[in-house]
């Protein structure tokens, strides 16, 4: 069975490093982009199985990216997990409104993240 591909759109290099190790250990193929525009382009080009999207990004912010992908017939099926240090209710609500499938705050529990990923990929 081909490996599932996860796209990380995250500007913290060490965070990408850490997630990379964890996800590859679970047999995922990991792609990454370090700014909003690059992330959006990569999502459209590569059509990953799941996207982990940081909210505070340079160039385009995470909400916009989520909205652009979710409101586009071609990409709306890709599950998106929003990922950020901001944990206020309005941030979560905004996430819901732009169509995110899940929301994780940093620092996060890696088991929780992995559980969410498998739940979303199963669908």
């Amino acid at each position: 069975m081909p490996k599932k591909r996860i796209l990380l759109i995250e500007d913290e290099a060490d965070m990408v490093y850490a997630l990379n190790i964890q996800l590859e250990a679970l047999n995922f193929e990991v792609l990454s982009a370090s700014d909003g525009q690059a992330g959006l382009d990569m999502a459209r080009k590569e059509k990953p199985d799941l996207i982990i999207l940081d909210l505070m990004l340079p160039k385009i912010d995470g909400y916009k990216i989520c909205r652009l992908l979710k409101f586009d017939e071609k990409y709306k099926k890709i599950p998106i997990i929003m990922f950020t240090a901001r944990a206020q209710e309005q941030d979560k609500k905004l996430g819901q409104e732009v169509g995110a499938d899940a929301y994780i705050t940093k620092p996060f529990d890696s088991k929780a993240l992995l559980d969410k990923i498998s739940a979303l990929l199963k669908k």
Partner: peptide
Amino acid sequence: HELRTPLAVIKGLVTI
């Protein structure tokens, strides 16, 4: 907020 990001990285790396 700024403190949370490196903390998340540390947690992630140590967990690995």
